[in-house]
Each structure stands twice: as C-alpha cells, then as structure tokens.
Amino acid sequence: MQSRLLLVEDDPEIARVVRDMLRLEGYEVTWATTGLEGWEDFQRGSYDLVLVDLMLQEMDGFTLCQNIRWKSDVPIIIISARKEDEDKVEGLQLGADDYLAKPFSLVELKARIESQLRRWRRYKGVPVSENKTNYTHELTVFWDQRKVLLSQKTVSLTAMEFDVLKVLAQNPARVFSKSELYEHVWHQVDEEGLHTVTVHIRSLRGKLEDPVKNPKFIQTVWGKGYLFIGEPL
C-alpha cells in the first residue's frame, strides 16, 4: 500500500528535491508551503507521516506539531535549520517523533521516514507484507529488506548498487541517462559522476549474471542510457 506523506516546507528548492525523491521512492506526497496550509491539508486528508519545518509563515512548526498531535498519533519528523538543543527538545516535547537538522542527507531522511513508518504500522497492528517482486530468470527483490536473490542465492549488493537497481526496476518503462541515475541515486548533479554510474552498472550486471549483449534485466539503450527489462511474474 502506498504511504501518504505531508511535507510542510516553505523553501521551494528544498521542498521540490525532497518531494521528487520521495515520489521516486513510491510515496504519495502533498506539499504545503505554510503552517496554516499544512494544518488545513492535514485536516482534509489522511496521512501516514508528516514532515514539518519549524520556520513557517502563518503558523510556526511548533504550533503545527502541537495541533497535529492533539488530533492524531501519526509520526512527525521535524526538518529544520534551527539546530539549538532547546528547539529540538521543544519539538519532541510537543509530540514530534524525530528531528533532522538542515542541511541533511536525502539518504538519511529516507531511512528515518522508513523507520518511523515501520513503527507506525506496528502500532496500528498493520501486518507488514514482504513487499517483494519476483522476476523471470529467478530474480527476486525484497524492497524493504533491500535483499536480492538470484536462483535462490543471495546477491551481495552495495547500498548504491541496490539503489541503482531500485530506480531502474521500479520505473520499468523509462530510460534513465547516466546523469539522471547519478542525480536520483547519489542526489548530486555532477558530470564527473557519470563514470561512477558506469562502474556501478558494470558491477551490478556482473552480480546479476546479466551480459551486456544478451541482457535479462538491464538493457543499454545506446546514446540514451539504461532500461530495466526484467519481467515480473
């Protein structure tokens, strides 16, 4: 089931990067630019987690956290440039479940969101599915566990190799250029990173026993990039 997240952030640059990353990870994201807008969105919708900045217009993040907590036990993660201990303590005392100071890593943000959602599901008694996909040629990917099996044997992937596979496999109809993969996986825009993508694709293909000339999973679209061609069962 797709998790619904509410992002309350007034910095459009940060908000778009976070929103796009989360949508790529399969989340449904609503973006509010002020505290009042975030509160109105929360009351109108049903959300599994809320991301809140503290320095907001119309209603500050502290008040928004307090209002949400009076109404719901949904997980709240504060993302703020305010790093003072008093702000962290106040935010947690008002009901926030976690506090992440800016600038933060998107990888860390994703991990904290996943951790809070797991706790939320256990709290609600929602059975946690394996969330796996079986493909032809005996490939199985366990998305939450970040585990890959090939012919019933575990494939030892690095974190970045798994993320490359995830981006490709969860967007099977899309050709990703090297620069797009580098942006989505490493969350950077840097032409020097294209060689890094090449190295990881080569390593990933080797571990998946996926030859370039007769691919089963990752096809090179010459002049454009890479396309996932694995067929789900």
Rank of each mutant, 00 (worst) to 15 (best):
Glu130Ile: 01
Gly193Gln: 04
Leu208Gln: 03
Glu58Gly: 02
Leu6Asn: 01
Pro103Leu: 10
Leu157Asp: 00
His200Asp: 02
Ile229Gln: 07
Ser105Gly: 06
Gln219Arg: 05
Leu181Trp: 01
Gly223Met: 14
Ile229His: 09
Met160Cys: 06
Ser80Pro: 09
Glu28Gly: 09
Val50His: 03
Ser105Pro: 02
Trp39Thr: 01
Lys110Phe: 12
Glu28Ile: 09
Leu181Pro: 03
Val189Asp: 11
Arg4Pro: 05
Lys224Gly: 06
Ile78Lys: 00
Lys224Leu: 09
Trp143Val: 06
Arg121Gly: 04
Leu36His: 08
Ile77Leu: 15
Pro215Leu: 06
Val221Gly: 04
His137Ala: 00
Val89Asp: 01
Val185Leu: 00
Leu100His: 09
Phe142Glu: 02
Glu37Arg: 03
Leu165Glu: 05
Ser177Ile: 00
Asp53Val: 05
Arg16His: 11
His187Trp: 08
Ala81Met: 13
Tyr182Ile: 03
Phe217Gly: 01
Glu114Thr: 13
Gln2His: 13
Met59Trp: 07
Leu64Val: 04
Leu56Pro: 02
Pro232Ile: 00
Leu208Lys: 02
Leu94Pro: 02
Glu130Leu: 06
Gln93Glu: 14
Leu92Val: 01
Leu100Ala: 12
Thr33Gln: 15
Leu64His: 01
Leu117Tyr: 10
Asp98Asn: 07
Trp39Asp: 00
Leu94Met: 10
Pro12Leu: 08
Arg44Asp: 06
Val89Cys: 10
Val50Ala: 03
Asp97His: 04
Pro127Val: 12
Pro75Lys: 00
Thr34Leu: 11
Gln219His: 05
Thr133Gly: 03
Arg82Phe: 08
Leu150Lys: 08
Glu28Phe: 12
Leu51Val: 10
Lys124Arg: 15
Val8Arg: 02
Glu13Cys: 09
Phe62Trp: 09
Arg146Leu: 11
Ile79Met: 15
Glu13Gly: 12
Asp41Glu: 15
Gln43Tyr: 10
Gln219Phe: 00
Lys153Gln: 15
Gly91Val: 01
Ala111Asp: 15
Asp85His: 11
Leu106Gly: 13
Ser129Glu: 14
Lys124Phe: 08
Gly193Tyr: 04
Glu180Leu: 07
Glu84Ala: 12
Arg118Ser: 12
Val189Thr: 15
Ala111Cys: 14
Thr33His: 14
Arg146Ala: 13
Tyr47Asn: 08
Arg122Leu: 15
Leu24Arg: 12
Pro172Asn: 07
Trp31Cys: 03
Lys71Ala: 14
Gly225Asp: 08
Asp53Tyr: 11
Leu149Trp: 00
His187Pro: 02
Met21Ser: 13
Arg146Val: 11
Asp97Ala: 03
Ala81Tyr: 05
Glu183Lys: 15
Val141Tyr: 08
Tyr135Lys: 03
Thr158Val: 07
Lys207Arg: 05
Leu208Phe: 05
Lys213Val: 07
Met55Glu: 04
Leu100Arg: 08
Ala15Cys: 10
Glu86Thr: 13
Trp70Ser: 11
Leu227Phe: 14
His187Thr: 06
Leu54Glu: 01
Trp31Phe: 07
Leu117Asp: 00
Leu5Met: 12
Arg112Lys: 06
Val175Lys: 07
